[in-house]
Computed example of a mutant assay.
Amino acid sequence: MALVKAGIVVLDCAEPEKLAEFYKGLLDTEETDANANLVEITGAAGTRLAIRRDANATPPSWPRPESSLQAHLEFLVEDLDEAERRIVGLGGRALETRGAHGPLEERQYADPAGHSFTLRLRPSTAPKQE
C-alpha cells in the first residue's frame, strides 16, 4: 500500500487570489479550498494545484540561470494554438512558442506571477500511419 495517496503542487506568489484566477481559467475549475494564505484548486482531470502567499516571492528567471527553475508544470493539451490563445487571454505570456521550422510539440509560458510551465501535445492514440 502506498504511503502517499496524492500529491499537490504549490506555487508561491505575493497575491495568490489573482494567480488562482489564472489557473482556474486554464484548468476550467473552481477553487476547492481557500484561506488568507492559500488557495487550492482541483481541475476536472484531477490536477491539484495550490497557490500560497509569500510577500517576498520573486518570479523564477527561467531560462536565465539566476534563480532559475524553482518549479515547473506541464499540461497536456490537444490543440496548442487554442491553449495559447486562452493563456494569453488569462494574462499569461509566451516564453518560447515557435521554433525556426514551425510549431513545436511543446511550448513554454509564464503565468502572471512569472512561474514557467509547458504545454505539451497529448500523444495521439491513433495507430501510426506508415
Results as ranks from 00 to 15, higher is better:
T118Q: 04
E17Q: 13
L27V: 10
L49V: 02
A20T: 09
G99R: 08
S68M: 07
N56F: 08
V77W: 04
A20K: 08
L19H: 06
R120C: 07
A83S: 15
L26K: 03
S124N: 08
L121N: 03
I8W: 03
A14H: 09
R64E: 13
K18R: 15
E96N: 12
L19N: 09
P103L: 09
W62R: 02
H72L: 12
Y109Q: 02
R85N: 14
I41D: 02
G102P: 05
D81H: 10
P65K: 06
P65H: 06
G92Y: 01
L69A: 10
T97S: 09
F117S: 03
L69T: 11
L76D: 15
A2E: 14
E74W: 05
K128A: 15
V10W: 05
A34S: 15
E105I: 08
A83N: 00
R93H: 11
D79M: 00
V9D: 06
E82T: 14
E82N: 10
E78I: 04
R64P: 00
G114L: 05
R107Y: 04
L76V: 00
A57K: 00
I87N: 03
A36W: 04
A83C: 02
P65Q: 04
R120E: 06
A20V: 11
R107C: 02
D28S: 15
H115G: 01
E21R: 15
A110W: 02
L3Q: 10
K5G: 05
L69C: 12
Q129F: 06
H72I: 03
S124V: 05
A71D: 00
G7Q: 13
A100E: 14
L3E: 14
R98T: 13
E96V: 11
A2H: 11
R93N: 12
G46S: 04
